[in-house]
Design a protein around this nucleic acid. Structure first.
Lengths: 214, 214
DNA sequence: TAGATTGTTAATCGATTAACAATC
DNA sequence: TAGATTGTTAATCGATTAACAATC
């Protein structure tokens, strides 16, 4: 397999879904599956599933199918689900708190090691045993503690400076919930969750379905 | 323009971003723009922007560009940003609370008219003046109140029954935050926000950048 | 072995980019 | 008018689907 083959983001976005269904099969005690079965579960075509998986190697066995445990383990490695991550959250408003309190995080190897905010009313409070610190402490904290990922839950006007601060302190992955586009160097992974845009996409289809064509 | 021309979801997902930047231009008092300028702001190619917009009509003027107010208003109509929506939230845990408390909602014409949960500790509490009701009341409530959109913030095992209940009571748009796939009829708009999958996508690129190639 | 299902190449489809005539 | 920029067609690129030889 060509190490440097360019994998499209469309492929990458399907992998977590495969992973989710494979984990579900394991929970049900099912240890064998096929691209056809995965197709029925995920809604993606069997052909596409085989193409996707073969970007990363031949995980199946001709004539047989896929070993669920093996395949989920391989996909887990690809998407990084096999690792633990130290995370900081900047912005302890609605979304920041929701992220900090989300237990799925802890179960999946994500460890929130610090939370920052600039609101004095929030500083000093704790979410899941992590005390909210003054945002002014972020540089000091990051210079003393290794952190994998930063989550931006600030208002949009603070998003870019927050990102800059993370980048300057060596963070290489940013999950951005602020409703704005931020700029980061090429070697920093960035994933945006733009809820506003998601909602407008919903209302587009909602109106398309409900508005009478005259 | 062909009324029934199929517009790809890729196009639809770009529209809110155009809308966001156009609103920003208006705030800055800029009333004229071009596909070239929009390209610099959004990162999409000028050609693509013109193609996208011309799916819905000729909003520009040859030799001149686009009137910002007019274009934002037209895009707003397309994505439904010009309307108000009555919303219910089911599940008042971390995410449900964050959504309910999100003020951007109210500013943009979204009105949370009811919140439901099954946890007795939450029932009776209020978020932004909306009292959390027992989930068992949902059918009664929906039979008596018109609601546009339903937001699912339940654990995954309750997501499908929640969706079914919304659909049976005539809700035509669902915003799903539960980490599972739900099935709805074709005439119901569905938008999934799968944070787990978003996070795995981030860790994929994070590991790709940070893991040394040997 | 025969049947099943992968891995992979080839064909198709759709989306993006390029080019340019229209026109303000 | 000349310059600028759209709207739109054509060309290119990439992603998905189809097909099938390999093989368990």
């Amino acid at each position: 397999m060509d190490r440097d083959k360019k994998i499209s983001t469309a492929v990458i976005r399907r992998l977590p879904k495969y992973y989710r269904y494979l984990k579900e099969l394991l929970r049900k005690g099912i240890y064998k599956t096929s691209s056809k079965e995965l197709s029925q579960m995920t809604g993606f075509s069997a052909s596409q599933i085989r193409q996707d998986l073969n970007n990363f190697g031949g995980f199946g066995q001709q004539g047989f199918g896929y070993d669920v445990y093996n395949l989920s383990s391989e996909i887990g490695k690809i998407i990084g689900a096999d690792k633990n991550y130290k995370i900081i959250i900047v912005g302890a408003g609605n979304i920041g708190q929701a992220i900090a309190n989300y237990t799925g995080f802890y179960e999946n190897g994500y460890d929130v090691v610090a939370i920052f905010d600039k609101n004095p009313k929030l500083i000093g409070l704790s979410l899941r045993n992590v005390t909210i610190q003054d945002i002014d402490e972020i540089d000091t904290f990051l210079s003393q503690n290794y952190v994998d990922l930063g989550v931006i839950c600030t208002p949009k006007n603070a998003a870019q400076t927050t990102a800059d601060s993370m980048v300057q302190n060596g963070i290489k992955g940013i999950w951005n919930f602020a409703p704005t586009d931020i700029r980061v160097p090429d070697d920093v992974a960035l994933e945006n969750v733009h809820l506003n845009e998601s909602l407008f996409s919903l209302t587009y289809y909602y109106n398309k379905n409900t508005t009478k064509a005259d």
